[in-house]
Design a protein around this nucleic acid. Sequence first.
DNA 1: TTGTAAGCGTTATCAG
DNA 2: CTGATAACGCTTACAA
Lengths: 333, 333
Amino acid sequence: MATIYEVSELAGVSLATVSRVMNNNGKVSQKTRDKVLDAMSKLGYRPNSSAQSLASNRTNSVGVLIPELKGPFFGQLMAGVEEQLRKANKHVIITAGHSEEHSEKDGIEFLLSRNCDAIIVHVEAVSDDYLIELSRGTVPIVIINRYVEAIADKCIYLDNKIGGYLAAKTLLGKGHKNIAYISGPKWKEDSNERIFGHKAALEEAGIEFDEDLLYVGSYVHESGSIGLTELLHKNKKFTALVCSNDEMASGAMSTARKLGYDLPNDLSVIGFDNIIYSSYLFPTLTTINYPVMTMAKMAVDMVLRDVYEHHKLKISNVFSPKLVERNSVASIK
Amino acid sequence: MATIYEVSELAGVSLATVSRVMNNNGKVSQKTRDKVLDAMSKLGYRPNSSAQSLASNRTNSVGVLIPELKGPFFGQLMAGVEEQLRKANKHVIITAGHSEEHSEKDGIEFLLSRNCDAIIVHVEAVSDDYLIELSRGTVPIVIINRYVEAIADKCIYLDNKIGGYLAAKTLLGKGHKNIAYISGPKWKEDSNERIFGHKAALEEAGIEFDEDLLYVGSYVHESGSIGLTELLHKNKKFTALVCSNDEMASGAMSTARKLGYDLPNDLSVIGFDNIIYSSYLFPTLTTINYPVMTMAKMAVDMVLRDVYEHHKLKISNVFSPKLVERNSVASIK
DNA sequence: TTGTAAGCGTTATCAG
DNA sequence: CTGATAACGCTTACAA
């Protein structure tokens, strides 16, 4: 592999000049620039990124930590991050945190040891204090899908309350009064916010939230199935079900069909996230859109602005969810 | 950030010794080792990976190129790669090729410029010759889900013919004789192989493949919908439909339901891949399992063996698909 | 506008 | 078993 030294030799200039044309900084006359470019292509020169990093103290890599690499939601997130970063000629180092404290910390440690210029995390198990502490470190961090007050400017998040509110409103608007709810785990902030919005809408409509009609799941398909089964066991009437995410909605619908329900007439279901396959389900799922790809790109823009000095990038920290109407909600006659 | 120099100073040993304990090579007495370890933790020392790479000519990173970061199939692939690599303390640099020649080459170039120690690719648009050429370069490459004869030992692939055969056999076994087929694009080798296996099974059963009942799709959901619609327009009877992947099967089923078909009684459908949501569909999809995660790990094992000298890792290049029976196939009475 | 030279933080070769 | 010391390939003051 050719080095910068050989390029400088062939072009008849100094190392510094070669470096200048590579990085497009400093003044170089068109003539010498051409000579250098020429030598580079003749030699098939490709800069050694480790050497660049060592000398410049910049790796051009940003670390990404998400709970899982598979799964529809995180797939979108990753795709957004990679696309945006690649455009800027930076690369992504990706790792999974598995929603488990030890594993998340470990992942962050791993990324830091790789000398990332910044890290973008979607963490759930780690405490706010840990994040605050982390953000005091030398490596810039951006937190996606979580709001931590003390470092709000480093957070890119969704207004989950509005989402929960919207979902409930939709059901209410169709005449539903007895609404069951399958929530995400209590220790995840977003599930609490979603249910908060839900309750707000009920209250506005003068309907009391029935704790018996609440099942706390875990955001996975199976927990939607189990949740519906449990709710049904209580022998309390409900005509609609809101699920804190689409995967659980999908699980609940599978079970409902198995039990012979005619959806959505026997039971209306509404989800959250608008993951790719929500429109492939039967019936197609009415849900709340989570603009995760857009948010991922925004997280990258933040890094680009703060670390790589792409000024004039405008950053928004909060995003709003929107209703996506499909066929899983029926009107009460 | 503390450097190796400060560690050596605090421990009262030379740089070389510190390096030795870091890398666990060379002989170091337990006593000095302890002193060094102690100094390291006192200083919160973390080696500079760029410097290590520069000096050792090894980045401990492996590049991964796949068509898309989102999507159920590639999600699994990535998850497998990352998990296995992380265990070995290597990191993944990931990028998308979008099944487009220019973009794939560009992605590979990008990874090479990042000095990856090896690259794992799932490419579709680039030619065999390009891959052969690439494999002659200095960076080891492993090719996943594609068989290139000249470099077969660098390929990890599925026996798609058996898969196609299995799917057809399943339908035949249930008494279907009029079978429609929605295939992937003609330029993707795997779709050709799948259809080849399909035809072999038909032939064995003495049934002729009806070209009219073939629709060439593009492996995405919508193309399953369109495909079924087109097939129906031909007004030829068929009782079963095989789709070259689950996404198209999902699309076809959506459309069938929309048209009022009672699935699987009015139409049996079988897919390929066994992506995560195939069991969430209605009816749950009978399909052919693609052990993509296992294969991804095998690809990693191959680079671990060849590049990082983890000898005694056993490598298998070919994998066999298996039938997963669910509820989308009915018997013909 | 161009060149010189001092790092950047490791690894690895040789001696001892 | 341990220590000097020369690379590794590039960036970046500082000079010219």
